[in-house]
Design a protein around this nucleic acid. Structure first.
Length: 773
RNA sequence: GCCGAAGUGGCGGAAUUGGAAUACGCGUACGACUCAAAAUCGUAUGGUCUUACGACCUUGAGGGUUCAAGUCCCUCCUUCGGCACCA
């Protein structure tokens, strides 16, 4: 037998698999379908990251196991290729993003193929391909036609460095999610998507899906539903009313003042209205100006002291007890949530208490009342508020899908005729956003100037592009029919494949990407273009792979692991085994270069075990263990406990090694269980045993529950809960018999001596515990 | 500040139900093979005390429940993740 030469056999099998098209999914096959999905990568110039392959290796194991279980598996891959790094590269080098993307995807494809993932490459997609983004644009048009896309001038987060507007969701600690520089507020006309219309369904339908509990919690928190009431507080001696939102209507008798947000229309109106009764207008105006300069980060910093100004000269009336109470403007109340005004109850709310202490406002220990009754009595309205806000969908960048809209001076915003899709990205000379913050597309007059689709008069194209979330919002649908030219995907095919049975990806995508794509899928479901109301039946997430130093892998730290080198030196199978064995799948874990050597050693051991095969041997002394291992490996894979599945396989291999001879049957069973993890080596050994068909056409091994049970076991003897002895006993030994055998033992006698036995606890097939005085 | 997860050898980690803590792998030491090395194989490997048999201690800290606690309860500490003046 030859030595295990990974270079030779991995290339060999990759070629054969590709030629035989073994991993191509068959539309409408009579087998039960199984759709396993991984997040398609952004093809960066740096090449494949080990983090990608952790997820891909895991879902490849699942997909290969499913095929062996008789499913028709769809396991697709593609490229989420629009995005800033490529655009920034273009700005730096002048190389067209299209060319850089081609180069990067070619490299990624080569890398993924070298790892032997069983992707159906015939369905490969690329979000930057006009044949793909035609349908991204088409979906936008449908959103527009159904009133879910609208343009709005609003304060948005403006990244000073990227020169683009960011959604609230994309600002982290007041900084741009992409480049990390500070953001400020600016007014800009933006295309918005009305995701808030779906808030309740996005929340409620979480009941229907099997996501990790922590992922569900994240979605729930982001949507942030709260039930409460809108209560009107009249302003004394005026026609004005201030509406507050509260979840604690029951505390209304303790409300001793009102607070409104600095952006609240009432304040704005009052300080400009010369008839207003307010006596300290300039003080209020000064305060508002100060707040404007603050970033959201500063405003929402919990450790800062509360600030605010009283609106002197006016009072509000508490509708519950008709008492007059003062009104403040303060920045701890936000205009974007609820009604932008609150009733402050220092007795029951910490923030209100802090503010009240600072401004010497009274605490009222008025009794709590029944919320429903008081709401009825004061004629307030029960309402529901969501934390979720509409999605800012415009970007002032080149490398994204053009938003397919046209502005006509006569007719206003008009959608492009569907027959004119796709709106292709034109070539530009400079990729840099303009100083005004407009997209580089704005400089191409020939492209911008067009005709109004409605009146035929002169009109201008929208020059903003879509965020890079757009393409990834519906890609799972396109995989079902990736070449379709007439529709985003044939409905019958969608109906066959959807929903995705199992979706795995990074924890960092479990809030935004998941929410956005669920939103688009629900919309497409509503208008009859998607067959399932929830796109993903099951969602899991893998932990990050950190550098050897325990820090996040990054170029600047110099701790990046290049998969190519590992594959070259140890082989794809060793790489995959190590990644699956390194630790719990959902936890972050540092890369250990020695771990890969252990994985390789394990594969060598399996390879060399082949020498022990004997045709003469026809019984197995390890039958019980084998059945136990089959059970464990299968169950662990399903529970994403890949590390213990492999450890079980190692135990089996170690036992096999202790045997002088090995049955063919036992050896092939080990190969079959190992096949999803180490596909190349097992396929090679399988064929060396004389098998003509792929090992992946073998059925996944089954175990016999009756054969799992051991004939004997070590009965543990405890005295007062401490381990003192153990001996082999028949399985299912009776309590009586166990007691007799235990009390006969010298070790036991020694410990008991003249002590009195108070009681004896017997746990079947486990232990016996003697309690003495 | 709130929510969530976690804390186990020199290291990554295991322990489905409360029932032998440290599986499996890495590392280390010694041995076998070898002229030698590598590879491979074998043995040992939580700590303290003991010549030894063995005893005692040990799952972030402290307390509790229990015949029995890594696992359950209480208090506290630390780390990671998420959210954050959301009324």
């Amino acid at each position: 037998m030859e030595m295990y030469n990974h270079k030779k056999i991995e290339k060999k099998w990759q070629k054969i698999w590709e030629k035989k098209k073994d991993w191509q999914a068959k539309d409408f096959s009579k087998k039960t379908k199984y759709y396993s999905l991984v997040e398609f990568p952004y093809p960066s110039g740096e090449g494949l990251h080990v983090g990608h392959t952790r997820s891909y290796a895991a879902m490849d194991v699942i997909s290969r196991k499913r095929r062996m279980e008789g499913y028709n598996v769809l396991f697709p891959i593609g490229w989420d290729a629009f995005g800033l790094p490529t655009e920034n590269y273009a700005i730096r080098t002048g190389i067209h993003p299209k060319i850089a993307t081609k180069k990067n995807t070619d490299n990624f494809r080569r890398q993924l193929k070298s790892l032997g993932f069983s992707f159906d490459w015939s369905r490969e997609i690329n979000t930057t391909d006009p044949n793909y983004y035609k349908w991204t644009q088409w979906i936008f048009l449908q959103l527009y036609k159904h009133g879910l896309a609208y343009k709005k001038k609003m304060p948005i987060n403006w990244c000073l460095s990227c020169k683009i507007g960011l959604a609230n969701e994309e600002v982290i600690d007041g900084r741009c999610e992409r480049c990390g520089s500070l953001t400020e507020k600016r007014e800009k006309e933006q295309w918005m998507l009305k995701i808030t219309k779906y808030a309740n369904r996005l929340l409620k339908d979480l009941e229907k899906v099997d996501y990790l509990e922590k992922i569900k919690t994240q979605q729930e928190n982001w949507i942030g539903k709260s039930e409460g009431a809108e209560i009107e507080f009249p302003i004394s001696n005026s026609k004005f009313l201030i509406k507050v939102f509260t979840t604690r209507a029951d505390t209304i008798f303790g409300a001793t003042y009102l607070v409104i947000a600095p952006e609240h229309p009432f304040v704005q109106e009052q300080i400009t209205n010369h008839k207003s009764q307010i006596t300290n207008k300039s003080e209020i105006q000064n305060y508002i100006n100060k707040v404007k300069q603050k970033s959201e980060l500063q405003r929402t910093d919990l450790s800062k002291e509360k600030t605010g100004v009283e609106l002197k000269g006016i009072k509000a009336i508490n509708p519950a007890n008709k008492k007059e109470i003062p009104v403040f403007v303060a920045d701890y109340v936000l205009s974007t949530y609820g009604t932008g005004a609150i009733m402050a109850v220092p007795q029951h709310d910490e923030r209100d208490a802090e503010f009240a202490k600072k401004f010497n406002l009274p605490f009222s220990n008025a009794p709590l009342v029944d919320a429903d009754e008081i709401i009825k009595k004061i004629n307030a309205k029960k309402t529901t508020q969501y934390h979720l806000r509409d999605w800012v969908f415009s970007r002032q960048h080149y490398w994204g899908e053009p938003i397919p809209m046209i502005f006509c001076n006569k007719c206003g915003w008009q959608p492009i005729n569907e027959k004119d899709l796709p709106v292709k990205l034109p070539d530009v000379k400079k990729y840099q956003p303009t100083d005004t913050g407009e997209s580089p597309l704005a400089n191409i007059k020939k492209w911008v100037n067009t005709k109004c689709p409605k009146c035929g008069g002169p009109a201008k194209r929208e020059t903003d592009t879509m965020p890079n979330w757009a393409g990834s919002n519906w890609y799972f649908l396109r995989y079902c029919d990736s070449k379709n030219k007439k529709s985003l995907a044939d409905f019958k095919k969608l109906k066959y494949w959807m929903p995705v049975n199992w979706y795995n990806g990074g924890m960092e995508h479990t809030t935004l990407h998941l929410l956005y794509s669920r939103f688009w899928n629900k919309f497409l479901y509503d208008i009859g273009f998607a067959p399932a109301s929830e796109p993903y039946q099951k969602r899991t997430s893998h932990g990050m792979i950190l550098g050897e130093d325990g820090e996040k892998m990054s170029k600047s730290r110099g701790n990046v692991i290049n998969p190519d080198e590992i594959v070259k030196n140890y082989g794809a199978d060793a790489y995959r085994i190590y990644q699956m064995f390194m630790g719990p799948f959902d936890q972050a874990i540092p890369w250990d270069p020695r771990g890969i050597e252990g994985a390789r050693r394990f594969l060598n051991k399996i390879w060399n075990l082949g020498r022990k095969i004997s045709l003469k041997k026809n019984f197995s002394s390890l039958e019980t263990l084998i059945h136990q291992i089959v059970k464990k490996v299968g169950e662990d894979i399903e529970a994403t406990k890949f590390n213990t599945a492999i450890s079980a396989l190692m135990i089996l291999a170690n036992e096999f090694e202790k045997e002088k001879k090995l049955r063919v049957k036992d050896y092939t069973l080990l190969l079959t269980l190992l096949a999803p993890f180490a596909p190349h080596m097992t396929e090679e050994l399988w064929s060396q045993l004389g098998n003509k068909k792929s090992i992946f056409l073998e059925p996944w091994p089954k175990y016999d529950p009756k054969k799992i049970k051991e004939k004997t076991f070590q009965l543990v003897v405890q005295i007062n809960g401490k381990l003192r002895d153990s001996f082999a006993a028949k399985s299912d030994i009776s309590e009586e018999e166990a007691k007799i055998l235990t009390l006969k033992r010298e070790n036991v006698k020694k410990w008991i001596r003249d002590k009195k036995i108070i009681k004896i606890i017997f746990v079947p097939n486990k232990l016996i515990n003697i309690v003495t005085n």
